[in-house]
Design a protein around this nucleic acid. Structure first.
Length: 544
RNA sequence: GCCCUUGUAGCUCAACAGGAUAGAGCAGGACCCUUCUAAGGUCAAGGUUGGAGGUUCGAGCCCUCCCAAGGGCACCA
């Protein structure tokens, strides 16, 4: 809608317009074009705005006003209605794009031999939302789970397992994590253990049978566990291409880097220098590879295999420097321009008391969060009047959808960039600005529509309440676009919350059943809200 | 030490390119269920956008300095 109007305005006035949402009571769209022109032409903005106003004739507007240099555009009733009917017609396809480009998204990417911590939740959920949004806009999207399944840490783990004489088959992920923690504790006193760990990783890289066997077991166990969590979270990642996948591609990368003189020797290791950043290593002095070597191989592979227009890395902000180095290294190698790469660096979870720390026992396991959220939803659903009549099975299913929705939304409503202070009360909120609030509003629409039965797709004159919601519905595409451009699912979350809030107010003040126009508005609201939630990876229960 | 990021109501967060009166939720206060789902709604209260300068017709957003917090800086990933 906005783009359409911008085009019309350009045609009629010959000027570039960049519309923004108008403040309450000042129409539907506003423009500051006159101010921008005023600077260039040294004229008064107000004068310019007035002369621009005269040129605008499109009947998509009911009126155009000039106020202190701003131009305020009021959409005509017809334009609004037509757009609302379009929603009803196209349903869940309303707003679908046809970008025709390809994007590879690296997200979730947990480390193996560790339980899935709350830390990986953000990458998983935000990554999936960005995936959904791009897909809906017509991108070909390839999701990659860059599993952390290779590296010295597994040498250390194998060493410690052997030292403790444990049978890896019988260890749970939690126990593996504990063993790894013990290694670090002991290594503080015996630094030579670090060397042992590195040796075992070198063995692993050379294909040592024993090292290989233990590693395989750990990997398999982790994958099984992660699968379970992904299923719960309703997340499906197209490819699991862990770091180990690139094992046989690393030598080529190293050789190519040497040949192209991108890398050079330093203190027995092989490094890449950048000038504006500290150097990074691709080969350690003992000849084993690093994280960067594998990520370079991964980038090369993705570029070749998928020919993407864009590569998104949804990884914590603590990796910012590292990823800048990676993107720069890829460019130095001549594989792609670094502008093709984007790091969506989400802020880290923290506790009020400080950082999460496995060693200090300050951890929160995702499983625990999800099960508590489900439990709380279950309690509310039991005491809820509106969920009466649900069977026990249905209640259980609904609590699962609601609990998980709450956890996801709590994460997605924030701007990805900022740290999150982990607070049980907030994660488990089922009221107010929360996932369940949106789900509830959706279900509420559904319930009203069901009660009303069929309605005629007609709309007579809109009153203020009705108009307000239709205006909001029309803004959906803008929110969607904004979310995609900035890799910010929170824009959609916020938009959906606004719509839900306005709808609930409308619901409270207007009798819906019995009015075709109001039923049409309710239906459109339902479609858009559900779409928003789906894009965020949140399902809606039948009843709640 | 160097580099990056952040600072908005008591708490947790929004604010779409630098735009008009800075918006929500939670907590606390006063109300609304014999009308369509009260996980809802209404009203009131809550702010010198960390501080000081500057640029601009206009600054939470841009620049400089200061303060505070977080993160990163070669054999972890």
């Amino acid at each position: 809608m906005r783009k359409k109007i911008e085009q019309i305005l350009k045609k009629e006035t010959g000027e570039e317009f960049r519309l923004e949402r108008a403040p309450e009571g000042r129409g539907d769209y506003a423009s500051n074009t006159a101010f921008l022109l005023a600077k260039k032409e040294k004229k008064s903005p107000s004068e310019l705005a007035k002369s621009l106003k005269k040129k605008v004739k499109a009947d998509i507007f009911s009126k155009v006003e000039e106020e202190n240099g701003f131009l305020n555009f009021f959409l005509s009733e017809n334009a609004l209605k037509e757009e609302a009917f379009l929603v009803l017609e196209e349903k869940e396809n309303y707003g679908k794009g046809n970008a025709g480009k390809t994007v590879v998204i690296d997200y979730s990417s947990p480390n193996i031999a560790k339980s899935f911590g709350i830390g990986h939740l953000r990458s998983t959920i935000i990554g999936q939302a960005i995936y959904n949004i791009h897909e809906f806009l017509g991108w070909k999207v390839i999701g990659v789970n860059h599993l952390g399944d290779w590296g010295t840490q597994y040498g250390k783990l194998i060493y410690q397992i052997k030292k403790e004489g444990k049978n890896p088959e019988k260890l749970s992920l939690k126990e593996l994590e504990e063993i790894y923690v013990r290694f670090h504790k002991e290594a503080e006193k015996n630094p030579e253990m670090e060397e042992e760990g590195r040796k075992w990783f070198a063995k692993l890289e050379k294909g040592d049978e024993e090292a290989r066997r233990v590693w395989e077991i750990c990997r398999k166990k982790s994958l099984d566990e992660f699968e379970k969590i992904y299923r719960d979270l309703n997340v499906e990642i197209d490819y699991v291409l862990g770091e180990s996948f690139y094992e046989d591609k690393l030598e080529d990368v190293v050789k190519e880097a040497e040949k192209k003189k991108v890398a050079k020797k330093s203190k027995g290791a092989l490094i890449i220098e950048f000038g504006d950043m500290p150097p990074a290593m691709i080969l350690k002095s003992d000849g084993s590879t690093t994280y960067l070597t594998r990520d370079m191989a991964a980038a090369k592979y993705r570029l070749k295999e998928f020919s993407p227009d864009l590569l998104i890395y949804e990884i914590g902000v603590d990796q910012t420097l590292y990823l800048r180095q990676l993107f720069s290294a890829v460019e130095k190698m001549g594989w792609a321009k670094k502008e093709k790469f984007v790091h969506v660096g989400h802020g880290m979870f923290r506790l009020k008391e400080g950082r999460f720390s496995t060693r200090k026992g300050r951890t929160v396991h995702l499983e625990e969060v999800l099960s508590l959220a489900k439990k709380k939803a279950e309690e509310i659903i039991e005491s809820s009047a509106t969920a009466k009549g649900l069977s026990r099975e249905e209640k259980k299913e609904a609590s699962k959808i609601i609990g998980i929705g709450a956890v996801k939304y709590n994460d997605l409503k924030r701007h990805y960039k900022r740290d999150v202070v982990f607070d049980w009360d907030q994660v488990l909120t089922l009221k107010g600005d929360s996932g369940p609030y949106l789900q509830y509003t959706c279900v509420r629409c559904e319930s009203v529509l069901e009660k009303a039965g069929k309605y005629k797709k007609e709309m007579e004159e809109l009153n203020d309440e009705e108009r307000k919601i239709v205006r909001r519905i029309v803004q959906f595409e803008e929110a969607l676009e904004n979310a995609a451009e900035n890799f910010s699912p929170n824009v959609i979350a916020e938009y959906a919350f606004r719509l839900a809030k306005e709808f609930n107010h409308f619901y409270d003040t207007c009798q819906i059943v019995g009015s075709d126009k109001r039923l049409a508005i309710t239906d459109a609201t339902r479609i858009i809200l559900k779409k928003c939630l789906n894009l965020l990876g949140i399902s809606v229960p039948q009843k709640m």
